[in-house]
Design a protein around this nucleic acid. Structure first.
Length: 507
RNA sequence: GCGGAAGUAGCUCAGCUGGUAGAGCGACAGCCUUCCAAGCUGUAGGUCGCGGGUUCGAACCUCGUCUUCCGCUCCA
């Protein structure tokens, strides 16, 4: 069994079989944006259902939410996105290396000061006041001057001045040694838009770069109206937007993407054990799909984000290598505290056991739905060599996730077989998404269904007209059985039941 | 954003030193009536990514632009 490892094959398969199309394709595509086709949307919805049921339905203390994409602009100041989600970048024209202009300047300041300090130590002035140091060391003086200038420029985000400073202080590229720089450009990773009809009166808004903040700002609404007691969680599935400088690798990194996030609120001090618990719970969820353990791993963040006190990723072995699929973060009380500060509203929980008020700590599980989709496709798509030497392309999706659950195929399109097949089809509509096809040879239709990941095909032949039995053909084994048509719903129904996955995930 | 490569039918691609496009598969209709991509007949589908330039004439040469892939960069 040869695994299809090439991402390109996955892209082609997704397009050819109606899973994913490039956005606005007839206009030459919109970069890094993709549309889900007729079968893609079914698979995606099934993944959502699997997540939602395992998180919300299976946990009495977790509730759902669907917050708006637009949020008050101050939300993003409080969350830290306005400040840390935009970088002033500068390129060296000779080496083509890109640097963060602020980092270059800060490093220069440190270098100058360090050099100065060495000189001062020789002169026994290391304990002297700044003023004396400035007088005694030229390098130190330059460092202090640059620091002052840089701080001033940073306050007004004056990027022109950044470049001037880089030139004045002769900062060179580490690689090329050249001082041939482009202008400083600001890359804001948040998409901006306007609210209001008239430009002058309009408010600047951002499209949310993550769904989490919608949960945090609704923390009290949900907690109070749901009369929820800590520990409890709020889960949400929704779109998020990031203006990635380089967005590539198919649906792995898109500008518009969908997240499935859950924020779990806990008593401060208990975050470590909840972090561990959610790590395991989430890993089980992934393993329940039948993925080999060696294709999944935890990855510890070396550099923690500004809010986190612990962070690990669940990585999956994509065709492009081990990459982040889901993040599990211990966010402390950072978000709620920030919103408390910026909104002036108390975002606290009264713990009747401890008889005290506190800002809860948060454990976040955040998974990219599109990445999950890519993962499911990439581990399911196979070029299988059959006993007779032929190959077939098969998408052996977990049955509960398959876009089409069962196909009804009359062996030939005459002698009343189509009519009989449609009659059976109508009864199966209540079981799951069905598919009907009477064109082409039966073998060809089986293969087509294999490529779509349909777990069962039901074939209606002449014998069906006599005794109401049909052939049921299973996707993975290609095994065929003759059963009574009334049994089909039961057999298919039990195989495609989402509970099969949920039972494995919750253990 | 930089460097490299590529863009021709739904897909995979061919198209020579410039003479306005082909194959295989696929799709659609019909015949055959058939349990693992069978066969036969017919049909549709391309201003060769887009826009300039050179030329009597451009899919081919040239410039620009867009998109995709690889590498760098970036990555809460």
């Amino acid at each position: 069994m040869a695994e299809v490892e090439n991402l390109q094959k996955i892209v082609s398969h997704c397009k050819e079989y109606g899973f994913i199309f490039p956005s606005s394709e007839i206009y030459d595509n919109l970069g890094a944006v993709y549309d889900y086709g007729q079968f893609g949307v079914e698979l995606k919805n099934n993944i959502k259902e699997y997540w939602w049921k395992s998180m919300v339905q299976m946990h009495v203390n977790i509730v759902g939410l669907d917050s708006a994409i637009f949020m008050h602009p101050t939300v993003w100041k409080a969350s830290g996105h306005v400040d840390s989600f935009s970088d002033p970048l500068i390129d060296n024209k000779d080496s083509k290396k890109r640097y963060r202009a602020d980092v270059l300047l800060e490093e220069k300041i440190d270098k100058l000061k360090e050099k100065g300090e060495k000189e001062l130590t020789k002169k026994n002035l290391s304990e002297a006041s700044v003023e004396e140091k400035v007088k005694a060391s030229r390098d130190y003086a330059k460092g202090v001057l640059l620091e002052t200038e840089y701080t001033k420029a940073a306050e007004t985000a004056d990027f022109k001045r950044y470049k001037e400073l880089i030139e004045e202080y002769e900062i060179a590229c580490e690689v090329s040694g050249s001082k041939n720089w482009t202008d400083v450009r600001q890359f804001n990773l948040m998409f901006g838009t306007k609210l209001g009809a008239v430009d002058e009166d309009s408010t600047d808004l951002y499209l949310r770069p993550e769904t989490a903040q919608g949960i945090f700002v609704n923390f009290l609404n949900v907690q109070k109206t749901g009369r929820l007691k800590i520990p409890f969680g709020i889960a949400q599935i929704g779109k998020a937007f990031r203006n990635e400088i380089v967005a590539r690798q198919f649906i792995f990194r898109m500008r518009e993407f969908e997240q499935m996030e859950m924020q779990f609120f806990v008593r401060p001090g208990t975050q470590k054990e909840w972090f561990e618990k959610w790590k395991q719970t989430r890993m089980n969820w992934h393993l329940a799909l039948g993925t080999a353990q060696e294709n999944l791993r935890f990855h510890v963040h070396e550099k923690l984000a500004h809010y986190a006190d612990a962070a690990e990723d669940i990585q999956f072995k994509f065709p492009i290598g081990f990459k982040e699929l889901e993040g599990i973060h211990s966010r402390g009380d950072f978000d709620l505290s920030q919103h408390q500060k910026f909104s002036g509203k108390k975002l606290q929980y009264f713990d009747s056991e401890l008889n005290e008020n506190y800002v809860p700590y948060v454990i976040e599980t955040s998974i990219g739905l599109d990445r999950m989709f890519l993962r499911v496709i990439s581990e399911s798509l196979k070029d299988e060599v059959l006993e007779n030497g032929e190959t077939r392309t098969v998408l052996n999706l977990p049955a509960a996730l398959a876009p089409i659950k069962v196909a009804i195929l009359p062996l030939v399109k005459k002698d009343g077989l189509p009519e009989k097949a449609r009659e059976i089809l109508n009864t199966l509509k209540f079981v799951g998404r069905t598919f009907y096809e009477e064109k082409d040879s039966i073998g060809k239709r089986y293969r087509r269904m294999d490529a779509l990941g349909t777990p069962y095909c039901i074939t209606v032949d002449h014998q069906t007209l006599e005794d109401n039995t049909v052939t049921i053909r299973e996707r993975d084994t290609m095994q065929q059985d003759r059963i009574h048509m009334d049994e089909v719903a039961k057999i298919v129904g039990s195989k495609i039941d989402m509970n099969n996955l949920l039972r494995k995930a919750i253990c």
